[in-house]
Amino acid sequence: MRRVPLAPRPDWQDQVERLGFAFHTLDGQTYWDESVAYAFTLEQIERDIEAPTEAIEQLCFAFIETALRDEAILTRLAIPAAQWDFIRESWQRGDRNLYGRLDLAYDGKGPAKLLEYNADTPTALFESSVVQWDWLEQAMARGMLAPGCDQFNSLHERLIAAWAQLREPTPYRLHLACVQNSNEDKGTVDYLMDCAVQAGLDARFSYIEEIGLLSDGRFCDGANQPIETLFKLYPWEWLFREGYAANLATSRCQFIEPPWKAILSNKGLLACLWEMEPGHPNLLPAFFEGDPRCASLSPRHVRKPLYSREGANITLIERGQVLDQDDGPYGAEGFVLQDAALNLFETGGRYAVLGSWLVASQACGLCLREDASPITKNTSRFVPHYIEA
């Protein structure tokens, strides 16, 4: 694994905008950064990223089985008791999931360590799938990279295939929704809708704020059309607090991601996995805050809210002193403490976190976010990667 400085394409903005990538710059700061790329060997991808990603996914599935039989676990995860049966029934039905992203610490030597699982509402998908693949092809065509380089990236094909499977056994109407006033969320949903249409689905968009409730208990879009299947780029923990939360289980709606993802999209998962598999090579020691076992953590550790987005309210601590932190609105439900990853990639004062993508629970893509801070935030830059020829 190497960090490789490269000259950006002189017309890079035009090139990414022709793909429909409208949020390459956020609040006047570059988000898509092709002045650098990360190079991997094929062995590093297959042995240290792909295989551990799928192993962690299977570990998560085993944990769901345990959690659904143990109300104490569901309570510690701060999942409302009123939704427990809704989640159980989703798992028992075998509701299919679409995608997720494991954030990993990895410096090229291995083993990769799980930092968190973005199981419910991960973004950075379009740039991972389409934009960095287009960059790779142009980088080789323009002589910036040697011919024959590759990329860990079959996201586009896997997403179309996964949508096609979700369509079976009979076609249905699909709604996709996100909040208003978020270009990043809208771009992610637009891309997923395009993949769904390519898979043959009748797909239409609606903002979350437009969704209502019909007299028969079904959800509907702004045109009062019933919602049969809903992809929602909106976290389950937020939905559980909405005024219509009591209608979720009776709405006859298929949700993507499914309700059982609420168990995995929670940083309490980190403590639970470590308790289930202490010493696992791809896990970091982690405990719920207040657990006496927190005393066994390294002097350098991280405090994370059970629910958090894009680094908000995460604090890096060493021997009781705060080294770095990011503010935000989260933490009311509690925190976990996790050992700091010693193998977080760092060079020249730049830190990189790997995002390993899963589609239908199969590892199939990679993205990297880079920052001057060890905490990955909304402002962290997206940088492309390639597999050396």
Rank of each mutant, 00 (worst) to 15 (best):
E210W: 05
P147W: 06
Q362C: 06
L114I: 02
N118P: 13
S373H: 10
A164Y: 03
A286S: 15
Q13H: 00
E17T: 00
L102T: 08
D11M: 06
T315G: 01
P374M: 10
A162D: 01
L366G: 08
F152H: 13
D33Q: 12
L264V: 09
G349M: 09
Y386H: 11
P305Y: 02
H175P: 05
I387T: 11
L366S: 04
I64Y: 12
Y31S: 07
A295C: 08
T25P: 06
P278A: 15
G110Y: 15
D85N: 14
V197M: 13
E370D: 12
E71R: 15
W32H: 02
S35Y: 01
I317M: 15
L284C: 08
Y351C: 01
I263D: 00
D371Q: 11
V359W: 01
P259Y: 00
F240I: 05
P10E: 11
A340V: 08
E34Q: 14
A164R: 15
H385V: 03
Y191W: 04
Y38Q: 11
M140G: 09
R173I: 10
G110I: 09
T41W: 07
I45L: 14
Q165F: 14
L273I: 02
Y244V: 13
R142Q: 10
L264P: 08
H24A: 15
K261F: 06
V359E: 03
A7W: 03
Y106N: 05
R381N: 00
V359G: 01
Y330I: 04
D291T: 02
G187E: 04
P384A: 01
I375V: 11
A271F: 07
P299W: 14
W238E: 09
V322N: 10
L155H: 02
N378P: 01
D327S: 14
T347N: 14
Q225G: 07
G200N: 06
I160S: 11
R142V: 05
N181L: 06
Q338A: 08
S154L: 12
A332R: 12
E168F: 00
G355N: 12
H156R: 03
M193A: 12
V131N: 00
T75F: 11
L201D: 05
I87G: 02
L74A: 02
T347G: 11
Y207Q: 04
T41D: 11
L214S: 06
C364H: 02
E54H: 01
H280F: 13
A22G: 12
F152L: 14
G20S: 02
R69E: 09
L316E: 05
I87S: 05
H156T: 14
F126T: 04
P278V: 08
L155N: 03
Y172G: 14
F288A: 01
E388H: 11
E116W: 12
K186I: 07
F287H: 14
D85K: 08
V197R: 15
F240L: 11
P226S: 00
D326L: 14
K261A: 12
T25F: 01
L273H: 07
A312D: 11
